[in-house]
Amino acid sequence: MTSEAPLGVFDSGVGGLSVLAQLRRHLPHEDFLYLADTAHVPIGARPDDEIRDLTERAVAALHARGAKGVVVACNTASAFSLTPLRERYGPSFPIIGLVPAVKPAVAATRSGVVGVLATPGTLRGTLLRDVIRKWADPAGVQVLTAVSAELVPLVEAGQASSEQARAVLRETLTPLAQAGADQLVLGCTHYPFLADSIRAEFGDTFALVDSGAAVARHTGNVLAGAGLLREAGRPGHATYLVTGNPEASRPVMATLTGVSEQNVTVQQVTT
Rank of each mutant, 00 (worst) to 15 (best):
V106T: 12
P100R: 02
L128F: 10
L98S: 04
L117C: 06
P138W: 09
K134N: 07
V131D: 06
G125R: 04
L127E: 11
A108E: 07
G121Q: 13
I95W: 02
F93D: 10
D137P: 00
G97Q: 09
R129Q: 13
G140L: 03
I96V: 15
A108V: 02
V102D: 00
A136T: 06
L117Q: 05
V102P: 00
P138Y: 10
R129C: 04
V116E: 05
R124F: 14
P138K: 05
G121T: 12
T119M: 08
L128A: 06
V106E: 09
P138M: 09
P104L: 14
A107L: 13
W135F: 15
A118K: 06
I95K: 01
A118W: 06
I96E: 08
W135T: 07
V116G: 05
V114H: 06
G112A: 10
G140R: 03
A105S: 15
D137K: 04
P100Q: 05
V141T: 13
V106W: 05
A108M: 03
I132V: 15
R124M: 13
A107V: 08
L123A: 01
V116M: 10
G121N: 11
V114S: 07
A105V: 15
F93K: 10
P100T: 08
I96A: 06
P100I: 09
L127P: 04
R129V: 03
V141K: 07
V99E: 15
R110G: 15
V114K: 05
V99H: 00
S111N: 05
T122C: 08
G97P: 09
P91Q: 14
G112R: 03
